[in-house]
Amino acid sequence: MAPTFQDIILTLHGYWSRQGALIVMPYDTEKGAGTLNPHTFLRALGPEPWRAAYVEPSRRPTDGRYGKNPFRLQHYYQYQCVLKPAPANAQELYEGSLRELGIDTALHDLRYVEDDWEQATFGCAGLGWEVWLDGMEVSQFTYFQQVGGLEVDPVTFEITYGLERIAMFLQGVDSVFDLAWGHGVTYADLHLETERQCSRYNFEEADVELHRRRFEEHYGEAYRLLSFHSEDEKDSLVYPAYDYLLKASHSFNLLHARGALSVAQRAEYVDRIRRLAGTLAQVVVRQREALGHPLLRHQHAEETA
């Protein structure tokens, strides 16, 4: 009996929890990828150790296909796991999770194929692979090198599972909409209509002027909250600022999907977000330092034990 979509999530939660990861929650702001959840973006900065796993609903307006494409969705689910510092057996841990899901790695052809990752908007870059399972890309692996424009040390290791892809593989279905989510309910039951409507909204109906305005307002708010630090860094409200930066980034994605941005304008928006994300990352690093890097105590505890 192939696992349902929710079985897969529960299995991964159980597995990664046993590997010492915190099971944390998706973030309540629209974003393009699980990397932008503060549980990854902000925790990848600085020296504090961190292990976490979570499901992240991710929005990529340009990937919408009105529910007509069996693979492409403008809203989908990533399963994200971050390990910092990157352990020496990261690949083996990942392979263990596949076996836990019922994929016999001694039977299939599993491959790590070069695929470096870059999130220009948030100044992130890393080296890694996409993982092929008998020719199907099922996960993305990255060793972060830069976050918010800062070189990171220790390096965070990120695994992103394409939950839909893995579920399709395990359930042997050819369309994402045929996936069994659980208890007799399919992925289509949950998301076919949302895909149709949101694709239409993203490509045809999104109010360009509204989103231009929203971008400026959200960006302005993030900027204002961060500029507190020119007086006293401790007063900078980096977490609310990050929320507004995410919102600005989502408005940008919608404008892009609407074809409302020229190449040069796109570059300009990306540049603005990146610069602010860079400032934010620097302030976060200093604030954590001022707090005495509370999570380092775990590392110390482990080392003493």
Partner: peptide, 25 residues
């Protein structure tokens, strides 16, 4: 296609499925 191990029917089947899906699309 070139696999990275001795063949097993599941591997061919998987690769065929991926290509069929991509091309049907």
């Amino acid at each position: 296609y070139v696999a990275n191990r001795p063949l097993h029917p599941v591997i061919r089947h998987g690769n065929e499925r991926v290509l069929n899906a991509r091309l049907s699309d």
